[in-house]
């Protein structure tokens, strides 16, 4: 298959490790770019997913690729000292990674991330502050990219995606959670190349170039019209409500948990977690 038709298959042999290697060669180890990983209105699923990374793992990311100055789940500092780090980073060149949507009701009071000198700092304040000054902004996960579960009906916190909230270019790395390789790979491609190739929804083509349906191991069942009638059957789960045909990620070949498993491989239909409209428009997740 030619790379023009299928960017993921075309790049499969040299996808991540080579990008990482290139990135390492291109950055001065003493001058790693700073990175703020902000958790706004989120379940923290994306940072947990990042810790699951393999080849390269998160230690490699932290030691060799970027200088992560602020993340409330990982950093040693607490309270005001932690937030001081955030403020200090704003005066440097940095990448802003946001996971979670921006809760906007009551000036963002539904999502308080810090108290600094007696003042309450909301997720909305922090995203606005850092979003203005960051060299790159990555919206990681479906909440930051499209609103996701945080902005699902009836959306009591009036949450918005980071993409809609910030009036600037934001790279979307959706997924619920985002696969750690999509995140590290996107950061790597920023390090080596200021402009990673993005699609019209601002997602890296490298990871979101084709639909799950395109590379699904059960695709031949679909083509022959053989469908599973209930979960657990080995055939195509399209008639049970699979969203693979409308969801763009490389899950079938990259898979999850160190490439061990993924939803369709474990007999559950794709629920479209990485696409616009998740979760409201993707329901019902299973239909009998």
């Amino acid at each position: 298959m030619g790379s023009e038709i299928c960017p993921v298959v075309g790049n499969k042999q040299n996808i991540l490790k080579s990008i990482i290697d290139k990135a390492i060669n291109n950055i001065d180890q003493n001058k790693k770019i700073n990175l703020i990983w902000l958790e706004a209105a989120t379940c923290s699923g994306n940072i947990i997913s990042l810790l699951n990374a393999e080849n390269p793992d998160v230690i490699y990311l932290l030691r060799k690729m970027v200088n992560m100055t602020y993340n409330n789940s990982l950093m040693a500092e607490e309270g005001e000292r932690a937030f001081k780090k955030f403020l200090d980073t704003l005066d440097t060149e940095f990448i802003l990674v946001v996971e979670g949507a921006v809760a906007t009701k009551n000036n963002g009071l539904y999502n308080v991330i810090a108290r600094y000198k007696g003042k309450t700092i909301t997720g909305m304040d922090a995203v606005a502050m850092a979003g203005k000054k960051a060299k790159y902004v990555l919206a990681v996960g479906s909440c930051a990219s499209y609103g996701g579960p945080s902005a699902a009906r009836p959306n009591p916190s009036e949450s918005k995606s980071v993409y809609d909230f910030l009036d600037r270019e934001v790279i979307r790395v959706p997924g619920c959670p985002s696969n750690p390789q999509w995140v590290i790979g996107t950061i790597a491609s920023i390090l080596i190349n200021d402009n990673p190739e993005l699609d019209k929804e601002n997602r890296p083509v490298l990871f979101y170039g084709i639909t799950i349906h395109d590379l699904c191991p059960r695709r031949s069942y679909f083509d022959k019209g053989i469908f599973a009638k209930k979960l657990g059957e080995p055939e195509c789960m399209f008639k049970l409500g699979c969203r693979g045909p409308i969801t763009r990620t490389d899950c079938p070949i990259r898979r999850w948990n160190n490439s061990t498993n993924w939803p369709i491989g474990d007999n559950t239909p794709c629920i479209g977690c990485a696409r616009n409209g998740f979760p409201d428009s993707m329901e019902p997740f299973v239909r009998y």
């Binding site: 019209g225 008639k239 409500g241 045909p245 239909r287």
Partner: peptide
């Protein structure tokens, strides 16, 4: 729309 990709399980964006 039984075999239409965007109509999985007979549902389509709600």
């Amino acid at each position: 729309v039984s075999r239409e990709g965007s109509w999985g399980g007979g549902t389509h964006f709600g």
